[in-house]
């Protein structure tokens, strides 16, 4: 596993909100082709870490190296351009656009047509537009909701919305796909289907960073796992080791009196 090249390196990332230290010197490395789990109790700083990495927050200390080059802070659209895509813990779709349109918007960063192209509708723009629609349909099929293509995103079932958000993220052709609690609120069958989908995405060449509460899913799916507690990284290792680490058990269950 260690032979794989590094895709993302977090170097001493720190973030505080007023007096609350949400992240303290978090350093970790994600390798190409991995499914990397990030777990920790509620409020441990997992989503804050995501937001720093994807440029929605500016870290107060440290930074990220992605594919060998530093990631610019405070520039979410550039993070997406470099190849980082994400989903949100509380699903954020474009509710009044159709499922297909949601995925088509995801192609924005990989396409070029501007105002003049749109108004003149020249050959190149028409071809690009057709390619966008085709790719979006493929992606809907890939996540298994192609028959909901014309429905408004907000009318999709919860599980389908999660899938749509993944399809939209994949439309940006990410090198690293970050999933923020994708299994939250899902039942056993849905979680199992999600596991198959995530494994398929990895097999097709995308590295995955997974924040998850479902410990069984994380342990069964991830190659390596990092545990955050009170904003600090307490361990980064393979699931078998993490599972039995006393600090992890303490963080989750507390110390025996």
């Amino acid at each position: 596993m260690n032979a794989l090249p590094v895709l993302l390196e977090a170097q001493g990332v720190a973030k505080h909100f007023g007096g609350v230290k949400a992240l303290r010197d978090v350093s970790l490395t994600i390798r190409k082709g991995e499914i990397y789990g990030l777990i920790g109790p509620n409020g441990a700083g997992k989503t804050t870490f995501f937001n720093c990495m994807t440029g929605l927050y500016v870290p107060d200390g440290g930074g990220f190296l992605f594919d060998g080059l530093p990631l610019k802070a405070d520039a979410p659209h550039q993070a997406a351009e470099r190849g980082i895509a994400r989903t949100f813990q509380n699903i954020r779709l474009f509710g009044n656009m159709s499922a297909l349109e949601n995925v088509m918007v995801g192609r924005h960063v990989r396409t070029h047509a501007g105002v003049f192209g749109a108004v003149l509708r020249d050959r190149r723009t028409r071809d690009e537009e057709a390619a966008i629609a085709r790719r979006a349909e493929e992606l809907l099929h890939y996540v298994g909701i192609e028959d909901r293509a014309d429905d408004l995103a907000k009318n999709l079932s919860y599980g389908d919305q999660r899938r749509l958000e993944i399809a939209r993220a994949l439309a940006t052709e990410p090198k690293l796909l970050c999933l923020d609690e994708p299994a939250a609120g899902m039942n056993g069958t849905e979680t199992e289907e999600l596991r198959v989908l995530i494994e398929g995405i990895r097999k097709d060449g995308t590295t995955i960073l997974l924040i998850e509460h479902d410990v069984k899913l994380v342990m069964g799916l991830c190659d390596r796992v990092a545990v955050l507690d009170y904003g600090a990284l307490i361990i980064e290792d393979v699931p078998a080791v993490v599972q039995h680490d006393p600090r992890v058990i303490e963080a989750y269950i507390g110390v025996a009196a």
Binding site: G55, L56, H77, E81, R92, L93, F94, N96, R168
Partner: peptide, 12 residues
């Protein structure tokens, strides 16, 4: 619809 999501998928 959602400015944060728009940013996150790479819209400037």
């Amino acid at each position: 619809e959602d400015e944060i999501a728009a940013k996150a998928i790479g819209i400037n």
